[in-house]
Design a protein around this nucleic acid. Structure first.
Lengths: 342, 342
DNA sequence: GAGGGCAACGTAAACGTTTTCATCGCTGCT
DNA sequence: AGCAGCGATGAAAACGTTTACGTTGCCCTC
């Protein structure tokens, strides 16, 4: 079907070895044969077969990314960061996502064997046992936002606790006292860290005041439902901290529909700083993670491992700091001015 | 380095052929040998080498996606649609994006040879000559939003003209008379179609009224700049139609900063219906393309070609219709009610 | 002029699979 | 008892590359 290196060799009246050398610039070919081979290859529209090549070279120039989902701005930004860094390193991207179920994630992971030089893993299923079972030994791997007990792999994660603490302390500093929290999916490790930090900060600064925790699912709809429950409570909370921005945005809609003002009646804050956060009105206060930076850092780390730099061989654990973005949705005291903070 | 099928064969005291048959469920193996091979494979953590396998089977179960960019909600949605459909067909995704320059795009395309079963191409560089030069013959390919003269490939594109016409006619219907248009990047085919439809609709419904066209670059910043120019014009336009949503959102910010009201002083409309469009305030009127649907349709078409269904073999040209989403940013006459239209 | 060295080129092995074909032993039938 | 048929298994080719190694021919040097 396709034209192979043999076809080029035959047509140029040389051996396949010479074609390979010529086209890869390895030298050892006369200028005129080089030219002839080039001409024939172009004329025949020869394109080397990647799988065959990487079978022998043991390099695919591709990295695999195992993600829990592709939906929403978080992953959009993450992939963008990964892709940008990948281009710098001359790597392609094999993505696999939204596998519901550990078995499916395992299949996706195994299907990548032999087609990638390294792996970027961000998956709720990625516990130590899962990885040991499904990762080829010796394949460079970087984990993202994954809870793991041992130091087998390099890992990057966002500083959930630090970011959540910043948000809660900011709300307290603005004078809000009854601060509610909207959770994400149960079992999600990021959510657990954020919630714990919320509880800790509250306990530290407002001892005796009980936390108010509402369920959520990371999507806008569940934030909306949480908002409805919120406005019906008595006494009504005067601030809400959602575990991610999309829920915060849904929550804002529910609050507005109840005829309440943001931030005068209820302040709202989120987590992630998705691009949309600054465009909703009032603009959303949030703990910003440079999401694209996270992706870039992960890929850079992975590329280091792949290139076998001994210095990069040691599994590192990096926490990406979260940064507080104060916007109008929480600025009770200086509502309009704070909107300029981004 | 990795454990291969030979290791399993040796350990299980059978030939590699039997291991292959056993693990792939091709039958022809006794129940007990099957069990033994399975046990050994699991114990050794054997994972088949994808490149080697696809070299002989000529199937990679992967499709390549060549995209101009990964930034923004449009591509986020597009990839999501593609990914969702890919999972249904059991395909993985090799993405390559943001190549500035035809040469880079060509390299990305060629690097996919042998690693994919089909190609999804959406690139400004993808003219007929480029494709003929860099596409292996016989590789199933579906083009998205690409202008091409001949019918060599299947192609899907959004109905830019129809969507733009809907927007302009809606604005006219609401009573707006001086409607400006914000362009996208020069040379972009989608933009050209939208602009032409804008001009046509204006000429048809308001003969003699000259079109007002401002430059733009598809990003929020250029929309903002266009908005600044807009409010400074005299006579001032009373409506603006941006070639995409992000520019419309940037434009809205400029209008607000000038102290004007939306939609009372100036109506705003966009194109794409990105998720953010319904969250900005006022919510943005836009011509909605089911972006994820576009991706899904493209991948379904490609999968059909790959499976060699003779019925899907004929190159098809499909136009995805655009749908008008009327929201508050353009509803002069019934401002608050129209917001409920989504 | 013989021999050494080197550049250009070809031969063939190797990468890790799948699959065709042949072999072997067995069963069941005549 | 012999033989056809069949199920289980193994040997080997094939996929399209890269590359180690061998061969050839030439030039240079002594």
């Amino acid at each position: 079907m396709g034209v192979t290196i043999k076809d080029v060799a035959r047509e140029a009246k040389v051996s396949v070895a010479s074609v390979s050398r010529a086209l890869n610039g390895h030298g050892g070919v006369t200028a005129e044969t080089l030219e002839r081979i080039r001409e024939v290859a172009a004329r025949l529209r020869y394109i080397p077969h990647g799988a065959a090549r990487s079978l022998i070279t043991r390099r695919t120039h591709t990295i695999g990314a195992l993600l829990p989902d592709l939906y929403g701005e978080f992953f959009s930004e993450l992939i963008r960061g990964i892709d940008l860094a990948a281009r710098v390193h001359g790597l392609q991207l094999l993505v696999s996502s939204s596998h519901d179920g550990s078995a499916e994630a395992a299949a996706a992971l195994r299907a990548m064997q032999g087609r990638v030089d390294g792996l970027l893993v961000m998956s709720p299923h990625a516990d130590a046992a899962f990885l040991r079972q499904n990762l080829p030994v010796g394949l460079p791997t970087v984990l993202m936002n994954t809870v793991l007990e041992r130091d087998d792999y390099a890992a990057l994660s966002v500083d959930n606790a630090g970011g959540a603490r910043l948000v809660v302390e900011h709300l307290l500093g603005e004078g809000y006292r009854r601060i509610a929290f909207i959770q994400g999916p149960v079992g999600n490790h990021d959510v657990a860290e954020r919630e714990q930090a919320y509880r800790d900060a509250l306990a530290a600064r407002m001892p005796g005041v009980p936390p108010i925790v509402l369920p959520g699912e990371f999507d806008e709809a569940s934030g909306y439902r949480a908002g409805q429950r919120l406005v019906a409570m008595s006494p009504r909370p005067d601030a809400v901290f959602a575990a991610n921005d999309m829920m915060a945005i849904g929550c804002m809609a529910a609050i507005r529909e109840a005829g309440l003002r943001i931030p005068e009646d209820i302040a709202v804050a989120g987590f992630d700083d998705v691009p949309m956060a600054r465009y909703v009105s009032p603009a959303l206060t949030t703990a910003g993670v440079r999401i694209a930076e996270l992706g870039k850092a992960a890929l850079d780390q992975l590329a280091g491992q792949i290139d076998g730099d001994a210095d990069a061989a040691a599994p590192v654990h990096v926490r990406i700091p979260a940064e507080l973005m104060v916007r109008a949705s929480s600025a009770r005291n200086h509502a309009s001015k704070a909107a300029a903070s981004d």
